[in-house]
Computed example of a mutant assay.
Amino acid sequence: MSARNPGMDLDLEWVSKVRVNTQAVLKRAQQVQGCKVAKKQWQAAWLLKAVTCIDLTTLSGDDTPSNVHRLCMKAVQPVRHDLLKSMDMHDKGITTAAVCVYPSRVADAVKSLKAANSSIPVASVATGFPAGQTPLKTRLEEVRMAVEDGAMEIDIVINRTLALTGQWAALYDEVRQFREACGHAHMKTILAVGELGTFTNVYKASLVSMMAGSDFIKTSTGKESVNATYPVAIVMVRAIRDYYLRTGQKVGFKPAGGIRTAQEAVVWLALMKEELGNEWLSPHLFRLGASSLLADIERQIYHYVTGRYAAYHELPMA
């Protein structure tokens, strides 16, 4: 992970001046979706880059130590060794960026990765994920427990009520407290953009979260009806850019929810490159939150290497 974002004092004047031009955002989103995707070895290179930015995630009610263990093994070896070898990439240390689980499964994930001699960080969702509707005291305690169990990254959710009712000072204070509870762990702040109503609200929530010290801002929990979309991403990355120009602090971006195909992953990388530059093309500043995306990327790489598509049983989860 990159240097921490120390945050800044809440600047309500900056927040109140925010206006987002919806038509311009939608037009830019259309351009992004229409961009030509690289072919052959260039596409394979982009796909491997995408793999290294994935937060490989399981957030199910039926998570067990064994399926978390499988997920960790997949994170350590996300693409079959023989495929990497034929691309001469087998010794480049390609792993996913992190493994993301519920707080109660953090210890399992840490144990599995330690046993595999891997330094992949464990990320944990906390703060009453996904709704964020539990009492503040409980949400803070959840963050502390996940960090105690070995989580190096915490994905918090903001209180949507505060954002929807324009209580920016209260939102700032809450996120500040979460940041403190995270201690040395990096904090990714989930805005749940599908529940914020307007682009202007998304931009304001992005700004306030960054002012409060978020190291990353993230689109969604993956549990809302609307998740990561290109228009919302453009609003958020422009907020990241403005914050960087104003403070010199680089904040990361994580789209999550509904990202399933290799092609989409490449579009997301292209969006980052065009909007924020090459520096944001690394796991320090860009993550893809996904559970099924890796399977499709591995299928595409298999196709690149062999010229045919694999059956799903040829590329098991782990």
Rank of each mutant, 00 (worst) to 15 (best):
A3R: 11
G7M: 06
V18I: 15
V20D: 03
K27D: 14
Q31E: 13
G34M: 08
K36I: 15
V37K: 09
Q41G: 14
Q43I: 04
W46K: 12
L47N: 03
L47Y: 00
K49N: 10
A50C: 07
L56H: 10
D62M: 15
D63L: 07
N67P: 08
A75D: 03
V79M: 06
D88R: 15
P103H: 09
S104R: 15
R105P: 08
A109T: 05
A116F: 00
S118R: 09
I120Q: 11
A126D: 02
T127L: 02
G150K: 11
M152G: 11
E153A: 03
I154K: 04
V157T: 06
L162C: 07
G166D: 09
W168K: 06
A169Y: 09
A169N: 13
A170Y: 05
R179P: 05
H184D: 12
T200K: 09
V202C: 14
S209Q: 08
M210E: 01
M210N: 03
S214M: 10
F216E: 00
A228C: 08
R241N: 09
D242T: 13
D242P: 10
Y243H: 09
Y244T: 10
F253Q: 02
I259G: 08
E264F: 09
A265T: 03
V267S: 06
M272T: 05
E279N: 12
W280L: 02
H284T: 10
S292V: 09
S292D: 07
Q300Y: 03
R308D: 12
M317Q: 14
M317T: 14
A318I: 11
